[in-house]
């Protein structure tokens, strides 16, 4: 009778380590701080979002360095994963913040977009696609532990074509995937497919992120919205 107990202890210990490291590494949300002196317009909304995205990216690069195993990858592979997965990470964070809302996207605590604001900013279609993800995770009751794991998995699984050491990246994916499976076995034993269901949401995240990148690339080409260097650099990495 000692064996199952031991096994439970082992599973909990392993799962807790990765999940708790990710929970601790989770960045605080940052504020959009739209300029109150500028009248509302599509350009103002997009300028606010691009500035927010740039600052979020700085924070998320710091976060990636706390994913267990990520810093042991070569610098080139760390860069490649971030260049592929950055928009998925940004969107997943917006989605998680929006889970308590009804048809609104919480880009930041002080920047919540409803349908009308989305239309004004020319983001109606993109925001609707993001809301589809919100709906999916709402119906599943996505937990914070699952969110931090999925975000790390999205990064490790970002399918960059430039990876030097694909075995090391595979090991990182295995550690994170294993942590998700262990978490679900311990916390959702009633649904043995929950880990798989969560993984199956990732194609929609990839598709939505690709759409967002495309949209912001055309905004960049249009040249009317100022963009900071890191955001520009990562948009260019996607072209």
């Amino acid at each position: 009778s000692g064996l199952p107990q031991k096994k439970t202890f082992f599973v909990d210990a392993v799962e807790n380590k990765v999940v708790s490291l990710l929970l601790v590494a989770e960045p605080e949300s940052i504020f959009a701080m739209p300029d109150p002196t500028v009248p509302e317009s599509d350009i103002k909304a997009l300028t606010t979002l691009c500035d927010l995205a740039d600052r979020e990216l700085v924070v998320n690069i710091g976060w990636a360095k706390h994913i267990p195993g990520f810093p042991t990858l070569s610098l080139a592979d760390q860069m490649s994963l971030l260049q592929s997965g950055w928009m998925e990470i940004l969107i997943l964070r917006v989605v998680f913040r929006s889970l308590t809302m009804e048809d609104k996207l919480v880009y930041a605590e002080d920047y919540i977009m409803d349908e009308e604001q989305s239309k004004l900013a020319g983001l109606f279609d993109l925001n609707n696609a993001i809301l589809q993800l919100v709906k999916k995770y709402k119906s599943m009751g996505l937990e914070k532990e699952e969110f931090v794991l999925l975000k790390a998995i999205a990064l490790a699984n970002s399918d960059s074509m430039q990876i030097e050491d694909s075995e090391a990246v595979q090991r990182l994916q295995d550690v994170l995937h294993g942590a998700l499976q262990d978490y679900e076995a311990a916390h959702h034993p009633e649904d043995c497919r929950r880990a798989g269901k969560l993984i199956m949401t990732l194609p929609l995240l990839r598709q939505t992120a690709a759409r967002a990148v495309q949209h912001f690339c055309s905004i960049k080409q249009d040249g009317r919205v100022p963009m900071h260097k890191l955001f520009l650099e990562l948009l260019e990495a996607k072209v």
């Binding site: 690069i61 360095k65 860069m79 971030l82 900071h228 890191l230 260019e236 990495a237």
Partner: peptide, 20 residues
């Protein structure tokens, strides 16, 4: 790699993010 200077800098900097 030269094209991705800021990402490179941010990843290398182990303490605080570089001042952008």
């Amino acid at each position: 790699k030269e094209k991705h200077k800021i990402l490179h800098q941010l990843l290398q900097n182990s303490t605080s993010p570089v001042d952008l």
